[in-house]
Design a protein around this nucleic acid. Sequence first.
DNA 1: GGGTATTTGTCCGTATGTATG
DNA 2: TCATACATACGGACAAATACC
Lengths: 484, 484
Amino acid sequence: MLHLTARQGIPLYQQIYEQLRQGILDGALPEGSCLTSTRRLAAELQVGRNTVENAYAQLAIEGYVTPVPGSGFVINKVQYDIHPHAPDTRQQTTPLLTPADTPGECRYDFHYGNMEAALFPYRAWRRVSATVFADPDARDANPDAMHAYEDVKGSPALRREIMRYLYKSRGVRCTTEQVVICSGIQGGLSLLTRMIYPEHQRVAMEEPGYAGARVVFQRAGIQICPIPVQEDGMDTAALSASPARVAHIAPSHQFPTGAIMPIRKRKDILLWARECDGLIIEDDFNSEFRYNGKPIPSLQSIDADGRTIYMGTFSKALSPGLRVGYMVLPHRLLTAFDDAHAGFQCTVPLFDQMILARFMADGHWERHIRRMCQINKKKHDTLMQAIAARFGNRVRVHGCNAGVHVLLEFTCGEKEADLIRQAAEHGVKVYPASSGWLDRRGYADNCLLLGYGMVPECDIADAVELLHRAWFVQGGGSVVPGSE
Amino acid sequence: MLHLTARQGIPLYQQIYEQLRQGILDGALPEGSCLTSTRRLAAELQVGRNTVENAYAQLAIEGYVTPVPGSGFVINKVQYDIHPHAPDTRQQTTPLLTPADTPGECRYDFHYGNMEAALFPYRAWRRVSATVFADPDARDANPDAMHAYEDVKGSPALRREIMRYLYKSRGVRCTTEQVVICSGIQGGLSLLTRMIYPEHQRVAMEEPGYAGARVVFQRAGIQICPIPVQEDGMDTAALSASPARVAHIAPSHQFPTGAIMPIRKRKDILLWARECDGLIIEDDFNSEFRYNGKPIPSLQSIDADGRTIYMGTFSKALSPGLRVGYMVLPHRLLTAFDDAHAGFQCTVPLFDQMILARFMADGHWERHIRRMCQINKKKHDTLMQAIAARFGNRVRVHGCNAGVHVLLEFTCGEKEADLIRQAAEHGVKVYPASSGWLDRRGYADNCLLLGYGMVPECDIADAVELLHRAWFVQGGGSVVPGSE
DNA sequence: GGGTATTTGTCCGTATGTATG
DNA sequence: TCATACATACGGACAAATACC
């Protein structure tokens, strides 16, 4: 923006000229683009058009810009004299979307959380979007709702859809009043902290557990009580012994171990909550994908006492790019929520809420879930087979009954950092498990996380083969061209 | 979700039958809809298909459901025996989109913040959306970026576009590193509190000011130091006298008074910040709309000392349904931001960021701004004219040079609550100014807020006429049918 | 708008364990 | 002890309805 100071001796046109010239030299006004038209700039600055024309003429004479009749003043190439504070907007040729890591460096990426871009339901999403953003007169329902500040809890339409879905798929029983839309799991936890703090100054968390959840509590000033995780989930005895009266638990697929909590233990947890007048945060972040064994009811669905906060997200099954999650509050927390969030707005754009609501109402969501579950099961089977064939008993695989990642435990003294480095040298990205531990001394430093959401099924065997070479073949040097 | 307990004497098909029957009686399974197909339920429960068929056949025999070949088992109408805990999902006939207040009750709504639904650029948004969600192979750039967890600060592409726009329109100078995408102004302030607290335990705010900003600080445990607002913005003397070293200021259009801070005062504020080693939060929430007078440079653009945090939003000019804002951090806060947000994710869905980035890159944003500015100026002029004609000197109008709302001050002893009630009785919604005051004792209770973003220009004269009748015509009873 | 792929209920045969004669 | 009947559970083949392109 240009700023003109009146009554200071310097003529207006010269001020305009000077600032534009500076902008061109800075590179802030990229070459090839046009100056604002004289009419528009004159209107913006509230000066006469001739004043602007004067300035532009000066710039044209000096070769900074070239007037093109009927088009505008195009900015010419000049030697940049980079101003330290000026934004450098010249790299206009860079693609609009940020490129991921350059290919060749990394051939296969076992990121957990991300997913294959090709699996997103583009067509359905486009169609639903087009409907939601149809011209207002052509729309069936009231369009105002989309352009208004609304309920802190989120769009009622979406909340109703979520309620229905959760009842069908997870047995969660609730009314729309209990459903809150939030920015993913972190957003939900963040809202929660506002409600339980400072009454609750401690929260019990699985150790190892999900670091993304831990930071939210830590940031809110809540103390973490780490509770060991066994093969079947959180150690209930240790939980009872801890001073915390709020527990964050992922019973359907614990992160990172993948432990699934059996029904008996779930009941123990509920009993614990009742006895200490506590709360349970049930983090069901990817309950959608279960491969072996019968489904186990969610904690919320067997909680007769209303002490469970159920949380879920669309990020895992649909896309991490859609940062939308939800939370089902027990009745006892409803007023606390209202109190804590009076005057606040829902952080999730209504646009996305509208699209999602219709996406679900049209049945796309359940269809997509099924499709993804099938695909992930195939991937899962392929991965397990490849691991068994290649790695044999040099690794133990944890958490292979659900979710989209497994935890590899190395039994022959390999170290996490070495494994990651060796894999990277062979063009495969694998991820450390260490971030899961609050106290790293409790970690033997011999585990890795392999998420298979992002790797196409056809590549999995190949990727495992590469890992095999990287880790277990003597002198299995780098095979990736260019990273030698 | 159904839950089956094995080896308990009760046959599987009977457990399924029983639970479904209960669901139908509860009303949790709405009549007219279909049961999950036998195959799918069998797969879900990990039982044979005939087991499910058996259960369904039983339900069919007893009349709860009717099998429709090729379609499914539709649920029949039964006498409900409502279970207290079951969600009642029966009202499936309600429209997907929530209806706003029933028309007839409210004819004109002077809400500030919301906007006319018809003015949203549907066509351009649809087009850009379709491009962003094009099938991945048809896309020009890397689609993975859309489906990944990414930078906490938001999409680099969008940040670059915002940087360019702010430089051109507001003179804000920054690099993309300084730009942070956030969930509207509240989201930005919320991020900020994490960085400045507990070093700063106080923040100076305009009195009256924007309640939506105040609650964020209060919630974070930060104490508000109210600073009186004069005709030309915050009282700098009072600011200097306050113990706060962080000030939240809306210099381009103060809320609710609409005061515009002159350049001299802006420099005073910057001086204050330098002298007390403080920070300025420049809330430019609707800088886009300015009608009279020359543009004044933003605080950020004349801050040589790097003490200004610049904040803006897309909610006002584009739609409140798009909860996206941005924040430009000074260099001195960059590391503090990184420290405070390690492990956190950006709360704004990448989808919207991608769409917005392309929307801006294609020039739609600036085009839209211009269009809206013209429309709002017309509305503004019409409103001012109508107010002058109808209300004369019974009201004083504040903040009529910018933004999309004005503050009406009543000079003849009218009271806020009465005015709102009287207006509502005539079918016009107007809004209290009282929420702007932290200390309501400082408020004479004689003001109203009129936002004209939501009222079509052609309705403004009519609406003001109605207000005139409501407030100033003796016996000007209700004229709205049905609200008598 | 018409052809195709998928999904649906339906019907079929089979295997297993248990009770009955 | 053996044969039979019954209840329970499982998977495949078929035709119709539906969804998708």
